[in-house]
Design a protein around this nucleic acid. Structure first.
Length: 800
RNA sequence: GCCGCUGUGGCGGAAUUGGCAGACGCACUUGACUCAAAAUCAAGCGGAGCGAUCCGUGCCGGUUCGAGUCCGGCCAGCGGCACCA
């Protein structure tokens, strides 16, 4: 048979669809397998080869599971709200709804042409009102529980996109969408209280199968630290200045305090501050600095001493100055710190710049050079003197603070609450009404979905206002609580809202009464295996775990964690080894590969190209190599023979079954395909193969190259769809040859190879090895000090 | 600075987890087929040497009968976080 991919691929795709063989069955008595991939954002550019690689892993596992008798849910959908579509709408004047529909149609066609075994009856679109109704519903549930709240605070704002961003959306101080610089702005915004789930998010990681680096990255992002809150009195006024520290044991080394420029203390006691002009000037300067400038000047500490306010060290009564400085952030801890220049490099740098005392309380460093952050004996610290164990000295100090009522143990997180509103059109409307009398009021559940109104212009306002603010018919409404005139919230939800629960909707995508039927959730959840990208670890994966934990708490979902197992795919780089980008012109279009080489070749290549989790450059020649492999397989049909000689292939065949089966489970797709290639080479070396052997071969190949393998299955008289045939099993006894070639070493150096009966006794193996002419001559006249045998691998003679 | 990862032929990558380094593929060389080329099939392919042999997994050291794999110390690169108190 020739591999005529153009003729067979469309044919099989049509047959699979007509027979509906990839439909998941709710409540089937078979064991269930829920495999999930990150649903795409349907951009105008169409699919990227990266999508193909990302989806191919779960695709292969899902196809294998089906053949192993599982009831498989392998869904796909579209995460379609978002800025690129809206920006395109602004540019062209075409409505985002229309653009989205076109892009979804394009993606659907592309995905189908690759032959993915998705259940197309369960497709979801986050911009569909029947879907976002439930995104809004979840928001209202959070509002009800106090987890969605409004607050005025400093927020990240992208002047270019004219939008407020969450911390996760501007990591490194750059807007995730336009890569422009983000500024801090005081604004009234909606937050989701993800910090209330910080400990749960940490704890949950202990019960899921995620790669270690993924767990680590989430742990770091959450950034839990244990320490203490300590109250410092301010001399002459009835005010406590509370600080957070991880080293309360260094309290005797405090020589000054620093508060953030935005700290409320200053305004509250403005009348006492003698140098208000200087303080105000410094604040203005800080407000102007970008994130970039603030981090660039790490070494050059700046600040202003507040004249007129003096703090008192609660452990020794010493009076210490208070500064404002921008190295202290309002957003972490209490926005105020106790400064211990002897043992904190930032405090040290500041003390040096301002000529402040440095008091050593832990021995071991050189105070003339730098702060000492290591361990050592406590000194100058009264009751702590002599302690050498950090943990003990901290415990001792905490005891003292608590006894005197001036401090307490506490924890802090780097993670902040999730800034949840965007001043944009193409997102889920936030179902809240603002009433002058009642405050923010929930839209009644029966009024959901709160639909996006049609608008003429999608431009956000210059003042950072949502385009919806101009739609009077939308804005004007009655307060659901008191009935008076009120205004609707005009901001929409961020990109990440729809993806925070979509895996639940797949279990019951058309439900009108609930986000999903509890029985179906119980049957399918949790997701057994979720593959995606590293870039979502501290955004989507964290957010969706948070939503899921919340839904678990209110009894909507049956399990505390959404994903039992998470895996990560590595990037596909351009042929030049750089990240693919339009500007570099090194982008590979998957549809070009489908047209020139076929979907099976594309699928095989993206998994064969290298270690699945590593970044690997694209190579056109290697694509051809995969095509050549499939052509060689197609020709098996012309090599079929009843000759008993074909039994010589059995060992190789059983080894291949074993290797392919286990490699797929470990996501070692490259070596699984390599094993199929090795078997192919063995078949060519023999020049013939039995019909049964070919059929076993195509079963193993089916997850990777489903079209060709179905074609061969049919041509060799296979019954029904190969996609539903039984996954082959192997006979361990048949995976070993009667004889094995092993290495013989002398003093650890390979000197010969000998053939032994597989599994032979140690003594017999030594005898065979010593009988080898070369070994005999090299050991002649020497004494054997030690003889080592690793069964069926290697012999090592230590001789003198 | 902190956290995590990686380093193996001309290239992508293997190595049963401490046991014959370089599976498989690409590129390249040669042969068969062909008037010829392509395709295909077959053979070769880490480096040095005619050779027996010697050298080789980023570098230096260690443990071991035996190290790509384990330990200590460097170097280089990638990803993430970062004035987080």
């Amino acid at each position: 048979m020739k591999h005529n991919f153009r003729k067979i691929e469309g044919k099989w795709q049509q047959r699979w669809e007509e027979a509906g063989i990839f439909k998941a069955v709710d409540g089937s008595p078979k064991p269930k397998f829920y495999g999930l991939v990150e649903f795409p954002y349907p951009s105008g550019a169409g699919m990227h080869v990266g999508h193909i690689k990302a989806y191919s892993s779960i695709e292969v596992i899902a196809r294998k599971r089906r053949m192993q008798g599982y009831n498989v849910l392998n869904p796909i959908g579209f995460d379609a709200f978002g800025l690129p579509t809206e920006n395109y709408a602004i540019k062209t004047g075409i409505h985002p709804r229309k653009i989205t529909d076109q892009n979804i149609a394009k993606f659907t066609n592309q995905l189908k042409r690759v032959g993915f075994s998705f259940d197309w009856d369960r497709v979801i679109d986050t911009t569909d009102e029947d879907y976002y109704k439930w995104s809004q519903w979840i928001f209202l549930k959070m509002f009800e529980k106090g987890l969605a709240f409004r607050d005025t605070a400093l927020v990240n704002y992208c002047p270019n996109c004219k939008v407020v961003l969450s911390n996760e959306d501007c990591q490194g101080g750059h807007c995730d969408m336009c890569h422009g610089e983000v500024v801090q702005r005081s604004k009234d915004v909606w937050y989701l209280r993800i910090t209330a789930y910080a400990d749960r998010l940490l704890e949950g990681l202990e019960h899921v199968d995620y790669p270690e680096n993924v767990k680590q990255q989430q742990i770091n992002w959450i950034g839990k630290s244990k320490g203490a809150f300590v109250d410092f009195a301010v001399d002459g006024i009835d005010e406590k200045l509370e600080i957070y520290t991880t080293r309360p044991d260094t309290l005797f080394g405090v020589t000054f305090m620093v508060i953030a420029p935005e700290h409320p203390l200053i305004d509250k006691y403005a009348d006492r501050v003698q140098n208000m002009d200087a303080v105000k000037a410094y604040r203005a300067e800080c407000a102007k600095k970008s994130e970039f400038e603030r981090t660039q000047l790490v070494k050059d500490k700046t600040g202003v001493k507040i004249e007129g306010l003096v703090a008192v060290n609660p452990v020794n009564g010493k009076k210490i100055p208070i500064f404002i400085a921008d190295y202290v952030m309002m957003g972490y801890g209490t926005g105020a710190i106790m400064a211990v220049p002897a043992h904190d490099q930032r405090d040290y740098d500041f003390a040096k710049a301002f000529g402040i005392d440095i008091i050593e309380v832990i021995k071991g460093g050189d105070m003339s050079k730098e702060a000492y952050t290591g361990d050592g004996e406590m000194v100058n610290s009264e009751y702590l003197n002599g302690y050498t164990n950090k943990k003990e000295s901290i415990e001792r100090m905490l005891e003292e603070l608590e006894k005197r009522g001036i401090g307490r143990a506490g924890v802090q997180y780097k993670m902040k609450d999730w800034a949840f509103n965007r001043q944009r059109y193409w997102g889920e409307p936030i179902p809240i009404v603002h009433c002058d009398y009642c405050g923010p009021v929930a839209v009644p559940y029966e009024e959901l979905p709160l639909r996006l109104p049609p608008v003429e212009h999608f431009q956000p306002g210059e003042d950072g206002e949502s385009p919806l603010a101009k739609v009077e018919s939308f804005v004007k409404c009655k307060c659901p609580k008191c009935g008076r005139d009120a205004r609707r919230e005009t901001d929409t939800m961020p990109q990440w809202a729809g993806s925070s629960w979509y895996f639940l909707r797949y279990t019951d995508p058309h439900n009108k009464e609930a986000l999903a039927d509890p029985e179906k959730l119980k049957y399918w959840m949790p997701v057994d295996w979720y593959n995606g990208g590293m870039e979502h670890v501290t955004r989507h994966v964290l957010y969706s775990r948070f939503w899921h934990q919340f839904l678990y708490d209110i009894g909507v979902v049956p399990c505390p964690e959404p994903y039992a197992k998470r895996s990560i795919q590595g990037l596909i780089l351009g042929p030049d080894g750089d990240k693919m980008s339009k500007s570099k012109g090194n982008v590979v279009d998957p549809l070009d590969i489908v047209e020139d080489y076929g979907a099976d070749t594309l699928r095989t290549y993206v998994l064969f190209m290298g270690d699945y989790s590593a970044a690997t450059p694209w190579n056109d020649n290697s694509v051809k190599g995969c095509k050549r492999f499939l052509e060689r397989v197609a020709a098996f049909t012309d090599m079929i023979s009843e000759d008993p000689d074909t039994q010589k292939l059995e060992t190789s065949l059983h080894r291949t079954i074993k290797k392919v089966s286990s490699d797929i489970e470990e996501m070692k797709f490259n070596t699984a395909i390599a094993a199929l290639m090795t078997l192919t080479n063995d078949i060519y070396a023999l020049g013939k193969v039995s019909r049964e052997q070919v059929q076993t071969f195509v079963k193993l190949l089916n997850p990777f190259a489903p079209h060709l393998s179905e074609e061969i299955w049919e041509a060799t008289g296979g019954e029904g769809f190969l996609a539903l045939a039984e996954w082959p099993s192997y006979d361990e006894a048949k995976t070993v040859e009667a004889q094995t070639e092993i290495g013989v070493q002398i003093n650890g150096k390979l000197r010969a190879t000998v053939v032994i009966p597989t599994g032979a006794e140690k003594e017999e193996v030594f005898a065979i090895a010593k009988a080898n002419a070369r070994i005999a001559s090299l050991t002649e006249g020497k004494t054997f000090v030690k003889e080592i045998y690793v069964p069926n691998r290697v012999v090592n003679f230590v001789v003198k």
